[in-house]
Design a protein around this nucleic acid. Sequence first.
DNA 1: ACCTAGATGATAATTATTATTAAAAAGGAG
DNA 2: CTCCTTTTTAATAATAATTATCATCTAGGT
Lengths: 153, 153
Amino acid sequence: MHNLSTDTNIPKLLKDVGLRVTPQREAILNFLIHYEGHATVDDIYQAVHPTFPGLSVSTIYNTMKHFGELGLVKEITFGDAASRFDVNVQPHHHLVCKHCGKLIDFYLPQPPNFALPPDASGFEIEDYHLEVKGTCRECRDKGRDEARNEQTQ
Amino acid sequence: MHNLSTDTNIPKLLKDVGLRVTPQREAILNFLIHYEGHATVDDIYQAVHPTFPGLSVSTIYNTMKHFGELGLVKEITFGDAASRFDVNVQPHHHLVCKHCGKLIDFYLPQPPNFALPPDASGFEIEDYHLEVKGTCRECRDKGRDEARNEQTQ
DNA sequence: ACCTAGATGATAATTATTATTAAAAAGGAG
DNA sequence: CTCCTTTTTAATAATAATTATCATCTAGGT
Ligand SMILES: [Mn+2]
Ligand SMILES: [Mn+2]
Ligand SMILES: [Zn+2]
Ligand SMILES: [Zn+2]
């Protein structure tokens, strides 16, 4: 499990995980490394496109799929919105603002304890995610249900 | 917060929550009342359509939106799959099979305890949901079968 | 019986994502 | 470096869930 940081050697990382080094992948990785938060495919496209006009969204989807399989990012999917990609691949959880969609990381000091019900016998747990929904301070200040656009992080 | 059960008086319930009583809503509610599990719009359509040929999916979307706002169902959205509607509106959580998408209810004996990080100050929590991902027994058994078949080739 | 707000259903539009595939390019061998 | 094979890219089409439109219909009240 790799953790991206601003001093990551991008071509080396790509080689290490067994991917060919292409300008597209370097550009996307470079974006992710400096981005704070949880980017969508479109976020990536909007950011990288100006300095890399040829880049296609297909390539971003493709690349993010590879990065996910190789543990460089973790895909998070909420509701009907676009998938977001988390460069924080440590196990952690999210506050989700119902109004603007912003995600805020948090960590559980210890795993929640629960007993599996009888009809779940044989279920093999691989992962869990606690999703806490509510209203972020910005959206609360702005007053209810007003501008529910933009500033998704 | 209403809880549907098999002896629910459907027209009365619709009136009580302030909705007009239409055959479409009665049919959808009747389906939900007898359905075990977490139905998608298409599940509802496939089930109700044979005995109600005119019914449109638009109407199901519309109706489920109303039911959700009135607390009769709770919409659950996972990944890129279709929304599911839970007639169990008590606070509870789900095991999610990564392979077949099946949902199994479970309950937390006590709420998970966690401290909000500094960058979440002012976040107002309204709800939370623990999503436990893994492999259900059926899919695990099927996986073994497939693995065995691949070995013999 | 009549009126009107609200509901329905056919259809189009939107949006995120996946599939297809010809052309381009990476990386390795010689 | 040159050639070759395999992967990658990017344009485009296809898919799928959901939402928007809107003409028509109807539930429920007068
Ligand atoms: Mn995160
Ligand atoms: Mn449930
Ligand atoms: Zn917000
Ligand atoms: Zn399963």
